[in-house]
Protein backbone atom coordinates (compact mmCIF):
# COMPACT_ATOMS: atom_id res chain seq x y z
CA UNK A 1 0.00 0.00 0.00
CA UNK A 2 1.29 3.42 -0.89
CA UNK A 3 1.82 6.23 1.59
CA UNK A 4 -1.53 7.50 2.88
CA UNK A 5 -2.50 10.96 1.63
CA UNK A 6 -4.04 11.83 5.01
CA UNK A 7 -2.34 10.54 8.14
CA UNK A 8 -4.04 11.36 11.43
CA UNK A 9 -2.26 10.18 14.57
CA UNK A 10 -3.64 10.37 18.10
CA UNK A 11 -5.32 13.75 17.62
CA UNK A 12 -6.85 15.43 20.66
CA UNK A 13 -8.96 18.57 20.64
CA UNK A 14 -10.44 20.53 23.51
CA UNK A 15 -13.10 23.23 23.39
CA UNK A 16 -12.52 24.73 26.81
CA UNK A 17 -13.22 21.81 29.13
CA UNK A 18 -14.93 19.72 26.48
CA UNK A 19 -12.70 16.96 25.19
CA UNK A 20 -14.03 16.88 21.62
CA UNK A 21 -11.50 14.51 20.07
CA UNK A 22 -9.97 11.83 22.26
CA UNK A 23 -7.02 10.41 20.42
CA UNK A 24 -8.28 9.84 16.88
CA UNK A 25 -6.02 7.98 14.46
CA UNK A 26 -6.95 7.44 10.85
CA UNK A 27 -5.20 6.91 7.54
CA UNK A 28 -6.85 7.67 4.23
CA UNK A 29 -5.38 6.47 0.94
CA UNK A 30 -5.31 8.38 -2.30
CA UNK A 31 -8.57 7.89 -4.19
CA UNK A 32 -10.40 6.57 -1.19
CA UNK A 33 -13.90 7.73 -0.26
CA UNK A 34 -14.46 7.70 3.47
CA UNK A 35 -17.79 8.55 5.08
CA UNK A 36 -17.89 9.47 8.75
CA UNK A 37 -21.19 8.96 10.58
CA UNK A 38 -22.13 9.40 14.18
CA UNK A 39 -24.46 11.26 16.52
CA UNK A 40 -24.23 15.04 16.82
CA UNK A 41 -21.47 16.10 19.14
CA UNK A 42 -19.46 12.99 18.34
CA UNK A 43 -16.57 15.03 16.96
CA UNK A 44 -16.96 14.09 13.29
CA UNK A 45 -17.19 17.66 11.99
CA UNK A 46 -14.40 18.71 14.31
CA UNK A 47 -12.18 15.97 12.92
CA UNK A 48 -12.95 17.05 9.38
CA UNK A 49 -12.23 20.69 10.19
CA UNK A 50 -8.91 19.67 11.74
CA UNK A 51 -7.80 18.19 8.40
CA UNK A 52 -7.56 21.67 6.86
CA UNK A 53 -6.97 23.25 10.25
CA UNK A 54 -10.11 25.35 10.41
CA UNK A 55 -9.86 23.95 13.94
CA UNK A 56 -6.48 23.66 15.56
CA UNK A 57 -5.87 20.42 17.42
CA UNK A 58 -4.16 20.34 20.77
CA UNK A 59 -2.19 17.09 20.58
CA UNK A 60 -1.16 14.54 17.99
CA UNK A 61 -0.25 15.00 14.35
CA UNK A 62 -1.95 15.30 10.99
CA UNK A 63 -0.01 14.96 7.74
CA UNK A 64 -1.80 15.88 4.53
CA UNK A 65 -0.10 15.10 1.21
CA UNK A 66 3.25 14.84 3.03
CA UNK A 67 2.81 18.27 4.62
CA UNK A 68 2.57 18.18 8.42
CA UNK A 69 -0.06 20.56 9.80
CA UNK A 70 2.05 21.94 12.57
CA UNK A 71 3.29 25.38 11.64
CA UNK A 72 1.29 28.34 10.46
CA UNK A 73 3.49 28.69 7.40
CA UNK A 74 2.38 25.68 5.43
CA UNK A 75 -1.33 25.89 6.18
CA UNK A 76 -2.28 27.81 3.06
CA UNK A 77 -0.32 25.32 0.96
CA UNK A 78 -2.38 22.52 2.47
CA UNK A 79 -5.67 24.37 2.12
CA UNK A 80 -5.03 24.95 -1.57
CA UNK A 81 -4.85 21.19 -2.07
CA UNK A 82 -7.84 20.41 0.14
CA UNK A 83 -11.28 21.53 -1.01
CA UNK A 84 -13.97 22.04 1.62
CA UNK A 85 -17.73 22.00 1.23
CA UNK A 86 -19.82 23.31 4.11
CA UNK A 87 -23.28 22.49 5.41
CA UNK A 88 -24.31 26.14 4.94
CA UNK A 89 -22.69 26.47 1.47
CA UNK A 90 -20.94 29.73 2.45
CA UNK A 91 -20.96 31.17 -1.05
CA UNK A 92 -19.63 34.72 -1.19
CA UNK A 93 -22.89 36.60 -1.25
CA UNK A 94 -21.55 39.79 -2.89
CA UNK A 95 -20.21 37.91 -5.93
CA UNK A 96 -21.90 36.17 -8.83
CA UNK A 97 -21.67 32.42 -9.23
CA UNK A 98 -18.92 32.86 -11.81
CA UNK A 99 -16.98 35.27 -9.58
CA UNK A 100 -17.35 32.90 -6.65
CA UNK A 101 -15.59 30.21 -8.65
CA UNK A 102 -12.92 32.42 -10.23
CA UNK A 103 -11.89 34.53 -7.22
CA UNK A 104 -9.51 32.11 -5.53
CA UNK A 105 -8.22 30.84 -8.88
CA UNK A 106 -7.12 34.35 -9.75
CA UNK A 107 -5.66 35.17 -6.34
CA UNK A 108 -4.09 31.85 -5.35
CA UNK A 109 -3.54 29.96 -8.60
CA UNK A 110 -2.64 33.20 -10.43
CA UNK A 111 -4.77 32.26 -13.42
CA UNK A 112 -5.75 34.82 -16.03
CA UNK A 113 -9.39 35.92 -16.00
CA UNK A 114 -10.22 34.11 -19.24
CA UNK A 115 -8.60 30.89 -18.12
CA UNK A 116 -10.25 31.02 -14.69
CA UNK A 117 -13.64 31.62 -16.31
CA UNK A 118 -13.11 28.69 -18.67
CA UNK A 119 -12.36 26.43 -15.68
CA UNK A 120 -15.41 27.82 -13.90
CA UNK A 121 -17.76 27.29 -16.87
CA UNK A 122 -16.50 23.73 -17.38
CA UNK A 123 -17.20 22.99 -13.72
CA UNK A 124 -20.64 24.62 -13.87
CA UNK A 125 -21.35 22.34 -16.82
CA UNK A 126 -20.21 19.41 -14.77
CA UNK A 127 -22.50 20.27 -11.83
CA UNK A 128 -25.34 20.97 -14.25
CA UNK A 129 -26.02 24.72 -13.84
CA UNK A 130 -24.04 26.60 -16.54
CA UNK A 131 -27.01 28.94 -17.03
CA UNK A 132 -26.59 30.32 -13.49
CA UNK A 133 -23.12 31.78 -14.04
CA UNK A 134 -24.31 35.39 -13.81
CA UNK A 135 -26.71 34.84 -10.93
CA UNK A 136 -26.06 35.83 -7.34
CA UNK A 137 -26.12 33.11 -4.66
CA UNK A 138 -29.37 34.39 -3.13
CA UNK A 139 -31.14 33.75 -6.44
CA UNK A 140 -30.31 30.02 -6.36
CA UNK A 141 -31.96 27.14 -4.56
CA UNK A 142 -30.04 25.44 -1.77
CA UNK A 143 -29.13 22.52 -3.99
CA UNK A 144 -27.85 24.83 -6.70
CA UNK A 145 -25.85 26.81 -4.14
CA UNK A 146 -24.25 23.67 -2.83
CA UNK A 147 -23.33 22.56 -6.35
CA UNK A 148 -21.71 25.96 -6.93
CA UNK A 149 -19.83 25.51 -3.65
CA UNK A 150 -18.54 22.16 -4.88
CA UNK A 151 -17.51 23.73 -8.19
CA UNK A 152 -15.76 26.53 -6.32
CA UNK A 153 -13.72 24.03 -4.34
CA UNK A 154 -12.95 21.91 -7.42
CA UNK A 155 -11.71 24.94 -9.36
CA UNK A 156 -8.58 24.92 -7.23
CA UNK A 157 -7.80 21.39 -8.49
CA UNK A 158 -7.64 19.96 -4.99
CA UNK A 159 -6.25 16.50 -4.30
CA UNK A 160 -8.70 15.95 -1.47
CA UNK A 161 -12.30 17.07 -0.97
CA UNK A 162 -13.84 17.42 2.47
CA UNK A 163 -17.63 17.51 2.80
CA UNK A 164 -19.12 18.66 6.11
CA UNK A 165 -22.75 17.48 6.12
CA UNK A 166 -23.24 18.80 2.57
CA UNK A 167 -26.91 17.83 2.32
CA UNK A 168 -28.10 18.49 5.89
CA UNK A 169 -29.36 22.01 5.16
CA UNK A 170 -31.16 21.02 1.95
CA UNK A 171 -34.79 20.37 1.22
CA UNK A 172 -35.33 16.65 0.55
CA UNK A 173 -35.91 17.06 -3.19
CA UNK A 174 -32.58 18.83 -3.61
CA UNK A 175 -30.44 16.29 -1.82
CA UNK A 176 -30.15 13.95 -4.78
CA UNK A 177 -28.77 16.56 -7.19
CA UNK A 178 -25.92 17.24 -4.78
CA UNK A 179 -25.32 13.55 -4.12
CA UNK A 180 -25.19 12.90 -7.88
CA UNK A 181 -22.38 15.42 -8.22
CA UNK A 182 -20.54 13.83 -5.31
CA UNK A 183 -21.09 10.36 -6.73
CA UNK A 184 -19.50 11.41 -10.03
CA UNK A 185 -16.53 12.85 -8.18
CA UNK A 186 -16.06 9.60 -6.32
CA UNK A 187 -16.15 7.67 -9.59
CA UNK A 188 -13.45 9.92 -11.02
CA UNK A 189 -11.14 8.87 -8.23
CA UNK A 190 -11.22 11.96 -6.01
CA UNK A 191 -10.07 11.38 -2.46
CA UNK A 192 -13.09 12.31 -0.37
CA UNK A 193 -13.82 12.55 3.33
CA UNK A 194 -17.52 13.04 3.91
CA UNK A 195 -19.41 13.68 7.12
CA UNK A 196 -22.93 12.62 6.23
CA UNK A 197 -25.87 10.49 7.17
CA UNK A 198 -26.80 9.71 3.58
CA UNK A 199 -26.76 5.94 3.80
CA UNK A 200 -27.56 5.45 0.13
CA UNK A 201 -24.58 7.52 -0.92
CA UNK A 202 -22.39 5.78 1.63
CA UNK A 203 -23.32 2.31 0.38
CA UNK A 204 -22.84 3.28 -3.26
CA UNK A 205 -19.71 5.41 -3.12
CA UNK A 206 -17.77 4.82 0.08
CA UNK A 207 -14.82 2.50 0.40
CA UNK A 208 -15.01 2.80 4.14
CA UNK A 209 -17.55 3.98 6.66
CA UNK A 210 -16.50 5.17 10.08
CA UNK A 211 -18.66 5.50 13.15
CA UNK A 212 -17.58 8.15 15.63
CA UNK A 213 -18.97 8.71 19.08
CA UNK A 214 -17.74 10.67 22.08
CA UNK A 215 -14.72 11.97 20.21
CA UNK A 216 -13.45 8.53 19.24
CA UNK A 217 -13.62 6.22 16.27
CA UNK A 218 -15.81 3.32 17.40
CA UNK A 219 -15.74 1.18 14.33
CA UNK A 220 -14.58 1.34 10.73
CA UNK A 221 -15.39 -1.07 7.91
CA UNK A 222 -16.62 -1.14 4.33
CA UNK A 223 -20.16 0.27 4.40
CA UNK A 224 -21.97 -2.97 3.74
CA UNK A 225 -20.18 -4.70 6.56
CA UNK A 226 -20.61 -1.78 8.94
CA UNK A 227 -24.30 -1.42 8.17
CA UNK A 228 -25.21 -5.09 8.01
CA UNK A 229 -22.91 -6.72 10.53
CA UNK A 230 -21.67 -4.11 12.99
CA UNK A 231 -19.49 -5.56 15.74
CA UNK A 232 -19.94 -2.89 18.37
CA UNK A 233 -23.08 -2.36 20.43
CA UNK A 234 -22.73 1.40 20.02
CA UNK A 235 -22.76 1.02 16.23
CA UNK A 236 -25.85 -1.21 16.36
CA UNK A 237 -27.63 1.30 18.58
CA UNK A 238 -26.80 4.21 16.29
CA UNK A 239 -27.71 2.36 13.11
CA UNK A 240 -31.01 1.21 14.59
CA UNK A 241 -31.93 4.89 14.88
CA UNK A 242 -30.85 6.13 11.48
CA UNK A 243 -31.40 3.23 9.10
Amino acid sequence: MSEAIIQIKDVHKYFGHVHALKGVSLEIQKGEVVVIIGPSGSGKSTLLRCINRLEEFDKGSIVVDNIPLDSAKNINAVRTEVGMVFQQFNLFSHLTVLENITLAQKIIRKREKAQAEKVAMDLLDKVGIPDKAKAFPIQLSGGQQQRVAIARALAMNPKIMLFDEPTSALDPEMIQEVLDVMMNLAKEGMTMVVVSHEMGFTRAAANRAILMDGGQIIEEAPPNILFNNPTHERTKLFLSKVL
Binding site: R79, M84, N90, L91, F92, S93, A104
Partner: peptide, 15 residues
Protein backbone atom coordinates in the same frame (compact mmCIF):
# COMPACT_ATOMS: atom_id res chain seq x y z
CA UNK B 1 -20.48 39.06 8.27
CA UNK B 2 -21.17 35.36 8.99
CA UNK B 3 -18.14 33.36 10.16
CA UNK B 4 -18.64 30.89 7.33
CA UNK B 5 -17.55 33.51 4.78
CA UNK B 6 -14.11 33.73 6.36
CA UNK B 7 -13.91 29.94 6.71
CA UNK B 8 -14.82 29.40 3.08
CA UNK B 9 -12.23 31.93 1.94
CA UNK B 10 -9.53 30.47 4.17
CA UNK B 11 -10.33 26.93 3.11
CA UNK B 12 -9.73 27.98 -0.52
CA UNK B 13 -6.18 28.87 0.52
CA UNK B 14 -6.56 32.63 0.96
CA UNK B 15 -4.56 34.31 3.68
Amino acid sequence: IPKGQMEAARSLGMT
